[in-house]
Simulated assay, not measured.
Amino acid sequence: MRILIADDHPFTLMGTKAFVESLGYKVEDVCSNGITAFNLISSHQPAVAILDINMPGMDGLEVLEKVYRLKLLTRVILLTMHKEMTIFRKANQWGVAGYILKENAQEELQKCIEIVKKGGQYISKNLENDLVIDTHSGSQNYPIERLTFTEKKVLELIAQQKTSKQIADMLFISEKTVEGHRTSIIQKLELPKEKNILLIWATRYFK
């Protein structure tokens, strides 16, 4: 069984690779950003892809969504530090095969791979207690769930009054990409085209 692993932290990437190989599996590809991960999944079609959620270029959820929409056969396991219910729901919506918190990975990854390769779904046994209910999930804030993980991160940084250049540097993307995210966020949240509208909205939302 061929496996791909993607994580933007080198030590986590190589540590996960070594662990998976110690279980007897063949790790065919490793990479550190979502765009490369998706391209490798498309071309090599590994049986399983183990992805970090927070990656430059394209986040793990976006890769998962593309795999789901294109009906690719690769099954996706997400390794993440994020415990927000909204992120888990979105992953489940896009057919995630495995969802594990990084803090539990050493105990659970082996069992997860075994279940996933048999066609099952594995959700971390600790997840039910660890998932954080989104305190902003009231009906008036529902549009926030339309945003991708990266767009939410951009919005959080806007709330911290970071400039597009600072956001680009922090997320390892270009300023042009940040501006594209800004435009997309405004459209998805159906905000009026007013000066500093994103800063005003984000500051209220993340207060």
Rank of each mutant, 00 (worst) to 15 (best):
I115K: 08
F149K: 06
L51D: 05
R146K: 15
P143R: 05
Y205D: 05
D7N: 13
M1A: 11
N129K: 14
D134L: 12
E107G: 00
M1H: 07
H136I: 02
L101Q: 06
I35P: 02
K195N: 10
I113P: 02
N126W: 07
A18F: 12
K71E: 13
C31E: 05
G34I: 06
Q140T: 10
M170K: 13
M58I: 03
L189S: 09
A202L: 09
L147C: 10
L61R: 00
I50H: 00
I185Y: 08
N33V: 07
K90G: 08
Y68V: 01
F88D: 01
L13R: 12
C112V: 00
P192W: 04
N129T: 11
E175G: 13
I173D: 07
L70T: 11
D169C: 02
M14N: 15
G15K: 09
L4G: 01
R75Q: 13
Q166E: 15
E128A: 13
R204P: 00
T203Q: 14
L127Y: 09
N92H: 04
Q121D: 00
R69E: 14
G57T: 07
K71I: 01
G138V: 03
V63C: 05
G98S: 05
S32G: 11
D52N: 11
Y68A: 09
Q121H: 07
S124F: 04
K193H: 13
L147W: 08
I186T: 13
K26P: 01
I41Q: 06
L131Y: 06
F19T: 09
T183G: 07
K111C: 00
G24M: 11
E65H: 07
S164K: 11
Q93A: 09
V132G: 01
Y142W: 05
T16H: 10
I144N: 04
E151P: 08
V96A: 05
Y99F: 13
L23M: 15
A47S: 14
I158C: 11
P10W: 10
A37W: 04
L23F: 15
R2Q: 14
N39K: 15
F38H: 12
E156T: 06
A18W: 04
E145N: 12
Y25F: 14
D134R: 10
N54H: 14
N129Y: 09
K118F: 00
V178Y: 12
R75F: 00
G98Q: 02
F206A: 07
I123T: 01
G180A: 07
T163Q: 04
G60F: 02
S164D: 15
S43N: 13
E179Q: 15
N126D: 06
E128T: 10
K17F: 08
E156I: 09
F88Q: 01
K207W: 02
N39A: 12
S124H: 05
R69F: 03
Q187A: 15
Q45A: 13
L101N: 03
K195R: 15
E108C: 02
W94I: 02
D29N: 10
A6T: 10
K117D: 02
L155W: 03
I133L: 11
F172Q: 14
L131K: 12
L73Q: 10
I53F: 07
Y205L: 15
R2M: 09
S137N: 14
A105N: 02
V96K: 02
G60S: 01
M85H: 06
